[in-house]
């Protein structure tokens, strides 16, 4: 029982990161139906920016804030200067463009920061631990969970309780109608891209101390975050969070009790199972396509 609880705690920690990634993916997917393949690479890029700033002896908060701002600016800039003016208007074309960006960013990271793994300094460490009747919670995993839940709460307030959030929801539902009502749809799209990229960057900064930082650090969390978003429903933000946490817990329990080697396969198994049984995801609404 204690072992199971221990796995659940570990799963919640990874799950909170998956949930952050899934949230960024779902945020973009539900507004523009584009899966952003560069999501993981943008996040890694932001983490490297933070690392560089920390090496210049800047305080942690400033460095992370600046790196998240960079990620947001890059996401918004990518939408404004590449995706929006692109001639190829089809979905396929836009997905291919994000693939190009992913390739470009990973190339730049390998060139600038090298392929070697690097240690990421973090104010919290995993040595001081809290004990709850045998279950060990390290400082860093507590910090990760608290930070991600805070970010999720902030996003919830922004989307559900502010005028900007209302505009975002309107654009996601029907961009043309929202535009007709005077909502600046393009700026809202750019804002969505910026927000999603910053969320990814936050996930990168939180993940970096647990694994070492290298240009491909976010590839696996990106795939898991995508699986989480599919599980919860690609066009539902609460669904993405739920899916991310569920996947994190399921994966850790699976790795602990069944097989560590095949825990990555589990994510793909879950994607296929969900799409077979309930294609719209746990919390997603049924979606009918028109010709």
């Amino acid at each position: 029982m204690t072992r199971l609880l221990q796995y659940v705690v570990g799963g919640l920690t990874t799950g909170s990161l998956y949930a952050l990634v899934a949230l960024g993916i779902a945020l973009l997917y539900r507004s523009s139906r584009v899966l952003n393949f560069a999501h993981g690479d943008l996040a890694t890029f932001a983490t490297f920016i933070a690392l560089t700033l920390l090496a210049r002896a800047l305080p942690f908060g400033v460095a992370v804030g600046a790196s998240l701002a960079t990620a947001a600016a890059m996401g918004a800039g990518f939408y404004f200067f590449v995706l929006r003016p692109a001639k190829e208007g089809t979905l396929l074309g836009r997905i291919v463009i994000t693939l190009g960006l992913a390739l470009l960013l990973s190339g730049v990271m390998q060139l600038v920061w090298g392929n070697e793994t690097q240690r990421f300094p973090f104010p919290l460490s995993d040595v001081p631990v809290l004990q709850f009747s045998g279950v060990v919670v390290s400082q860093i995993s507590l910090g990760t969970i608290v930070a991600s839940v805070t970010l999720m709460a902030l996003l919830y307030v922004l989307v559900q309780r502010t005028r900007v959030g209302l505009a975002m929801r309107a654009v996601a539902q029907n961009a043309a109608a929202a535009q007709a009502l005077g909502i600046p749809a393009r700026r809202i799209y750019a804002l969505t891209w910026g927000l999603a990229s910053a969320l990814g960057g936050a996930a990168g900064v939180l993940l970096a101390p647990a694994v070492y930082l290298d240009p491909f650090m976010m590839l696996d969390p990106f795939l898991k975050g995508f699986a989480g978003a599919v599980l919860g429903g690609m066009d539902s933000l609460p669904g993405a969070v739920l899916g991310g946490f569920l996947l994190g817990v399921a994966e850790t329990i699976f790795a602990g009790f069944v097989s560590f080697k095949f825990k990555t396969t589990l994510a793909f198994g879950i994607i296929i199972l969900v799409l077979l049984v309930r294609p719209e995801g746990l919390l997603g609404r049924e979606y009918h396509r028109r010709v």
């Binding site: 692109a86 001639k87 190829e88 291919v96 190009g100 960006l101 992913a102 390739l103 990973s106 190339g107």
Partner: peptide, 15 residues
């Protein structure tokens, strides 16, 4: 430089 060139050219081509 190859990944950078490939990525940049893919983006430019589609755009």
């Amino acid at each position: 430089w190859l990944p950078i060139i490939y990525g940049g050219v893919i983006m430019l081509m589609m755009a």
